[in-house]
Computed example of a mutant assay.
Amino acid sequence: MARRRRGAAGRDEEFTFVSPVVKYLLFIFNFIFWVRITLPNVFLFISTSPFFLSASEAALACLSVDPAIMLLVVGILMFIITFCGCVGSLRENICLLQTFCVCLTLIFILQLAAGILGFVFSDKARNKVTEVIDKAIVHYRDDIDLQNLIDFGQREFGCCGGVTYTDWSKNVYFSCKNDNPSRERCSVPFSCCILSKDKAVINTMCGQGMQELEFAEAGGHIHTNGCIDKLVNWIHSNLFLLGGIALGLAIPQLVGILLSQILINQIKDQIELQNYNQNHRSDPWS
Rank of each mutant, 00 (worst) to 15 (best):
A125K: 01
V18Y: 02
G243P: 06
I133M: 15
W234H: 11
E131F: 07
K268G: 02
C62W: 03
L97K: 04
L71Y: 09
S122F: 09
F79S: 10
W285E: 15
I271A: 10
A59I: 01
I133N: 00
E212M: 13
L259R: 01
R155P: 00
K197V: 04
I245R: 12
E92Q: 14
D198H: 12
I94K: 11
Q278Y: 08
Q98R: 13
Q270G: 05
W34D: 04
F79N: 00
D151Q: 10
I251L: 15
I264W: 03
G153W: 06
V35H: 01
S122A: 12
N171Y: 07
R185A: 09
L39Y: 05
V21G: 07
V255A: 13
Q208R: 14
A2G: 08
N275L: 08
V102G: 00
T99Q: 06
V188H: 02
L259P: 04
G248V: 05
I107M: 11
T99G: 12
I150C: 09
F119P: 00
R6P: 00
F119Q: 00
S49Q: 01
F45K: 00
W168L: 02
G10L: 09
T130I: 14
I194V: 14
K124G: 05
S19N: 15
L110F: 11
K128Q: 13
S19P: 06
N225P: 03
G243Q: 11
L258I: 15
F174V: 05
S187F: 03
N233G: 07
Q147S: 14
D123Q: 11
M1H: 08
I116S: 07
Q147A: 11
Y165K: 05
G219A: 09
W234T: 08
V73D: 05
D142M: 06
N30D: 10
N127A: 14
G7C: 06
C160S: 07
S47D: 12
L39K: 06
T82H: 07
Q274R: 13
L146I: 07
T48I: 00
T224Q: 10
E131R: 09
M78P: 00
A8G: 09
L25Y: 02
E92D: 08
G248P: 05
A55Y: 06
I222Y: 06
R3K: 13
V74M: 09
F157Y: 15
E92N: 10
P252F: 06
G248W: 09
N275K: 13
G162F: 03
G162M: 04
G153D: 09
I133F: 15
I144E: 15
A61M: 07
L97N: 03
E92S: 11
Q274M: 08
I94C: 00
L53I: 01
N30Y: 02
C101T: 08
G248C: 10
T99I: 08
C193I: 01
F31K: 04
I222Q: 06
Y165H: 11
F33G: 10
R155Y: 05
A218P: 07
D151S: 12
L247I: 14
V22P: 02
D134Q: 12
N171D: 14
Y140F: 15
L249V: 15
F100I: 02
G220E: 15
C160D: 03
D66P: 03
V188R: 01
A114I: 10
L146S: 04
L90M: 13
L258M: 14
M205S: 14
L149A: 15
F29N: 08
E212C: 04
L110G: 09
A8H: 11
H236T: 04
L241A: 15
L97W: 02
R183D: 12
I107V: 15
T164D: 14
K23P: 04
E214K: 10
R4H: 09
